[in-house]
């Protein structure tokens, strides 16, 4: 059985994002008019209001902007201590996740990380969760 995780926020656009994760594809919407990437998924480009977009495969690399370590447990699925990070993806959007194969003491500003997948399960079903780890292990 896949790993239970706190529930995802779901709408028709998020549904599509998560369905790509089932085949381990990290795709974000890219505006067909102006080329802006967006996250979280949604109906409209915030720059030009176009509703035309393509689900575009991301390189899966980003630089660390910040991180925080929980010393209090908020979710039973994530007992403390638990570290989360925010990255700036090469394509532009910021993306929050958690780091794998690297401890909080080894994180640094601007450090490059790359995409990993880990399994997930909630009441919407099975999926894969995009997380980030060192470029080389």
């Amino acid at each position: 059985m896949a790993t239970p995780r706190p529930i995802r926020s779901m709408d028709p656009y998020a549904e599509q994002f998560w369905s790509y994760t089932q085949i381990k594809e990290f795709r974000l919407q890219k505006c067909s008019e102006c080329g802006k990437f967006r996250w979280p998924p949604g109906p409209t480009c915030d720059r030009c209001l176009s509703d035309e977009f393509e689900w575009t495969l991301m390189a899966g690399r980003g630089k660390i902007l910040s991180w925080t370590t929980f010393h209090r447990s908020y979710f039973p699925e994530y007992p403390a201590p638990h570290t989360t990070i925010v990255l700036e993806l090469d394509e532009g959007p910021l993306f929050a996740a958690y780091p794998v194969k690297i401890g909080p003491e080894d994180l640094s500003e601007g450090m490059e990380l790359s995409l990993r997948w880990t399994d997930g399960l909630d009441e919407f079903g099975d999926y894969n969760l995009p997380v980030f780890g060192p470029l080389t292990e």
């Binding site: 995780r5 706190p6 991180w67 979710f75 929050a96 958690y98 997380v131």
Partner: peptide, 16 residues
């Protein structure tokens, strides 16, 4: 929004 990754609470966002 980031509950699936275990990121929650306004405090954590200010910690970031």
């Amino acid at each position: 929004y980031y509950a699936p990754w275990g990121l929650t609470s306004q405090g954590a966002l200010y910690a970031l």
